[in-house]
Design a protein around this nucleic acid. Structure first.
Lengths: 245, 245
DNA sequence: GAGGCCAACTTGTTCAGACAAGTTCCGCTG
DNA sequence: CAGCGGAACTTGTCTGAACAAGTTGGCCTC
């Protein structure tokens, strides 16, 4: 939060949040904002570009910017870390490791994690819950170079992300998520406390470091009555894609 | 495609696509690119910012940019329009209207479409398929001001989006999508040709014009064996959020 | 050979100015 | 009063420059 344009973006977010600019109303012009914050127009543009990509405001050449929404989307960190998300909602994240074993990387593992096939990778199955109620089943495969650090994390640690950061300085920076729906299998039903064949929201994701090196990939299954995902997009900025297998 | 920075972005995308820059390799420096395309560094930065937000490349201060992925995500238009998506995959979009009726707006309708409660809104139920195979059930509610134009569209029109653009100049510009999983109900199962209680991927979305005015909201249910969604994100740019109801 | 330090390199931030392109709204005309 | 035209306004594009901040790789030392 050093850069001036980030400070301005944050101030604008807060102003929208406390309805100083209401949904549907128009933001001040770039020139006005530049004068108010005593920066150049370019710096203001960087700030409003951030809000635009977050879907908070809309932008069209020639017309003043319009406030589209007030509640801001989550940060990458809140999405990445189950525990940080729970805390932001004022609920407690719980969780425990069901199993943790080393297996040779399958062809799929080696492609996703950019490893040579047969490397020993760590498979972890975790159940995670909100205030004790299980809502998520995480089947995660960790790359060989991070596996030892993952093993050192105690089984009921609420935030693995936090722990890995403290221990190794690891920062997750990029993610790719594939979302679909599956029927609960026998193990899923048992661990989540639901009936078999109940619909589950499945998110398969790969997370990489800032250098673009894959750290983990995971098959996460959410109880669909407990969790949904939301995505914002626009002509100028689209992160969402529909795919046929 | 007039702006120079968009042309450069497109050239870089194509270069990545044909593996001139391979995944994991480094992009030329901003100064190099500026010289090559004979533009200023600022213009190059606009171009690479687009690729960064698309998740194609990663960026860190001080280090050269890294190519993270080769396949590019869809444009907003391809996501918005089922027909355009199908065409981009080389498949044929089919579809027909099952029912189309006017009803007074419920409180939920009026909130999502920013209308006064009780306004007559158009409910349309469509089945859509790829090469004749049904994959999607669309339950859409249109705002009153666009309903007449929607009614004029013939029931088996493959691209409603295209049609509305031609007839009224309407452009969809922003979207908010909430994704979860549901079990197929009796009507869902019947129209999609699947068993009852099969898991379906549900996407509830609101689409708005460039002015930020809501046009439609829809409950879309996809056969989970036929369609998935993918989302890309990063620390710098996150459009995805996890929510508890 | 291992490790640390430094110089060169690269991206991030910010400025000021100029013109292009699209929107809005007022006032005029029929 | 409806519709049109145009002036004023606002965002988009692009340049060139300067400095800050972070990364990389090679050289030097121990």
């Amino acid at each position: 939060m050093a850069a001036r344009h980030e400070e301005i973006a944050e101030e604008l977010r807060r102003a929208i949040d406390r309805e100083e600019y209401t949904v549907g109303s128009r933001l001040p012009t770039e020139t006005d904002l530049a004068a108010r914050y005593e920066v150049s127009r370019g710096t203001v543009r960087q700030a409003v570009a951030a809000l635009t990509s977050e879907g908070l405001i809309g932008s069209r050449q020639g017309a003043r910017r319009v406030v589209l929404a007030s509640r801001r989307s989550q940060t990458f960190e809140e999405l990445r870390s189950f525990a940080q998300w729970a805390r932001a909602m004022g609920r407690e994240a719980t969780g425990h490791v069901v199993s943790s074993t080393y297996r040779p990387a399958t062809p799929e593992d080696s492609v996703r994690l950019q490893l040579t096939a047969g490397t020993q990778v760590l498979h972890v199955l975790r159940v995670r819950g909100l205030d004790g109620e299980p809502v998520l089943l995480e089947r995660t495969v960790y790359a060989d170079w991070i596996s030892p650090a993952v093993e050192r994390v105690e089984p009921d640690c609420p935030s693995v992300t936090q722990r890995l950061y403290e221990d190794t300085g690891l920062v997750f920076a990029y993610g790719e998520h594939v979302i679909d729906a599956v029927a609960a299998g026998a193990q899923d039903a048992d661990l989540l406390g639901i009936r078999r064949t109940s619909p589950l929201l499945r998110v398969r994701r790969v997370t990489t470091t800032r250098e673009g090196r894959p750290v983990e990939w995971s098959d996460d299954r959410y109880r669909s009555d407990a969790v949904t995902f939301s995505v914002h997009n626009s002509i100028a900025n689209n992160a969402l894609a529909r795919r046929a297998p």
